[in-house]
Each structure stands twice: as C-alpha cells, then as structure tokens.
C-alpha cells in the first residue's frame, strides 16, 4: 500500500473519530499530526469529572484518550503496513492532574515495531506538552492487514443530542 500523505492521515484519523460511537460521544478530535506523532484532544465536560469535590477529570477518561491516541497512532507511522491491531496491554502512570475545566490532549507514537507487535508510548497533557498529566505505554498485536482508505468511505455516526 502506498504511503498516506499528511492530509490523508488526518482524514483517516478524523474519520475514525467520527465512526467510533464513543469518540463521537466524547467529541474527541484531531489536534495535530507531526511526523509519526499523533495528538488528539478531549474537550472538557462536567460528565468526565472523577472527583466531585475538586472537579478534576477522572483517571479513566485520561485512559480513554490515551488508549484512543496510542491505538490510532499507527496510522501515522509511514514504515508500517497498516493492520488490525487489538490492544494487548496498557499501562498508565498518572503524573498529575489537569486543572478543573481544561481540555486535555494526548500525543502518541509507535516507538518500536516487530512483525507481530507494535510498541507504543503516549503522554496526556493540558495547555502544552510541558504539563504532562499521564504517561501511557502499551503493546498492540498486528493481525490482518487493513486498507486505511476503507475508513474514508464509512458513514459518520450522529453525535447524540
């Protein structure tokens, strides 16, 4: 499969955000693709709060954003034949918290790959990557090959009212 251009990568990532019911529900969006690094944004909403006394976002919501960004980051790796990649494991270190009310971001890339396994790392942050709130490390198995352009033809999910 030919390499995707930067625009095509962005289109595939945006399309994934729009066909996955849970990312549609949360309003996850593409922030940036730089080389093989993908950054997604999770907009703040009251429903994501984990501690009602501080208003801080739930650790689980950070896990959702990191899992999504890390899982999709393979799209941005030019040297990889795209494939269906179920997650094997995910480890999240919670380094700190974002102030209440802030959108959070995650930046991830495949840092090593073998014929069967992708090794991925990601960081969640607010305002700038200098304010990390969590670090993720995970492995994904490479199974059946996939044509990423398939995603471009899929109908988008409707955002719930």
């Amino acid at each position: 499969m030919p390499k995707l251009t930067q625009e095509e990568k962005a289109e595939v990532v945006e399309k994934m955000n729009r066909i996955i019911p849970h990312t549609v529900l949360l309003g996850v969006s593409l922030e940036k693709i730089e080389g093989n690094e993908l950054t997604l944004r999770l907009p703040f909403r009251e429903e994501l709060v984990g501690n009602p006394e501080t208003g801080v976002i739930h650790g689980g919501a950070v896990t959702v954003l990191l899992d999504q960004t890390m899982g999709v980051s393979a799209v941005c790796a030019d040297d990889l034949q795209p494939s269906v990649t179920p997650t094997l494991d995910l480890r999240i270190d919670h380094l700190g918290v974002a102030p209440a009310g802030r959108d959070i971001f995650a930046t991830a890339h495949v840092y090593h790959s073998t014929r069967r396994i992708l090794f991925v790392q990601g960081t969640a942050w607010y305002d700038s990557p200098d304010n990390p709130i969590a670090r993720g490390t995970g492995t994904w198995a490479r199974t059946a090959p996939i044509d990423l352009t398939w995603f471009l033809d899929q109908p988008s999910e409707e955002a719930p009212a």
Partner: peptide, 24 residues
C-alpha cells in the same frame, strides 16, 4: 450501552472505557 463502543467493526466496547470501569 452502544455509546461505549470503541470498535464498530467487531463490535466491541472501547478499551479505554473498560479501563475506566475497572479503575472506578
């Protein structure tokens, strides 16, 4: 809850949601 789907082709729940449920 279909809104928790993360893989529409299987379909399966979002792996992050499973993690969030387990963490809580």
């Amino acid at each position: 809850n279909k809104q928790l789907i993360g893989n529409p082709s299987l379909p399966a729940l979002h792996g992050g949601v499973v993690g969030a449920f387990m963490e809580q």
